[in-house]
Design a protein around this nucleic acid. Structure first.
Lengths: 135, 135
DNA sequence: GACAAGTATTTGAATAATCACATATAGTGC
DNA sequence: GCACTATATGTGATTATTCAAATACTTGTC
């Protein structure tokens, strides 16, 4: 029989699958939304792919590949780092910022709907507990 | 700014990514482990792919494709449903059951490690809260 | 100031999963 | 028992993501 720890992670996987499915909005997958929110939260100069990889718990390679279609759609742009020729900085374009603003409202609605059975306090507590998982 | 509901789901996605990474064991991905545990929990006659899809929050197509390599490796086998020629039943082979038994111990260790900052009560609570997400 | 070791990023090949559609079968109402 | 609709599953094409290796650059050390 699975332990309590495993059962909790099974519940985590299930909830995540439901959430990822529900949070597609404005042609953005949940993963893309996460990426764009991370970019918006970063310094105006942008965020390095390696940092994004850590933030989003992706591989650097995954970040490269996630950025590509967003660049093509004009949502994200990149600049070379003047001080380190290996590195670059990704940031939202103006169009990307607008798109994100438009997406956040509907996303928030759906998120609230997913969590509708939890009180505000329980939601906050869930967040705190999740933030303890894995670090 | 993202709402509390969105922030909670971001924390959920992060925790899931960490967990999925950590729970690979014995050549089984976390997804495969989930599938095998679902099979083990089902009736001895096996479980229909469609039911598995619901259990695991996958598409039926995803189940078909997840089962394929497991069948090839002799971990899972399928039987046609005698009463309904459209349907089939997937179940663990003896080798699959053994492999799963061997995988559960290490998986439980890693799961416990991920949750090491939470008390037993908090873990249980996290599980309860997660089970309220999306239904 | 060359050289070893480390860091940032990309790429090719592979795995996981999706969607839209195809196929086969079942169930229902007449 | 036919026509319709619904259900179970599989398939082709596409997207997301990984790992291992390649490339390009930086840094520290002697």
């Amino acid at each position: 029989m699975p332990t309590d720890a495993i059962e909790t992670l099974l519940a985590l996987a299930h909830a995540h699958a439901v959430a990822a499915r529900a949070l597609e909005v404005q042609g953005l997958s949940f993963g893309e939304l996460r990426l764009l929110l991370a970019l918006r939260a970063s310094h105006p100069g942008g965020r390095r792919p390696t940092e994004l990889a850590r933030d989003l718990e992706l591989t650097p390679s995954g970040v490269t590949r996630a950025l590509l279609p967003l660049e093509k759609r004009g949502i994200v742009e990149r600049e070379r780092d003047p001080g380190d020729a290996r590195a670059s900085h990704a940031k939202l374009t103006a169009a990307g910022a607008t798109l994100l603003d438009d997406a956040v409202g509907p996303a928030a609605e759906r998120a609230a709907r997913l969590l509708r059975r939890l009180s505000v306090g329980q939601t906050k507590q869930l967040q705190r507990l999740l933030e303890e998982v894995g670090r």
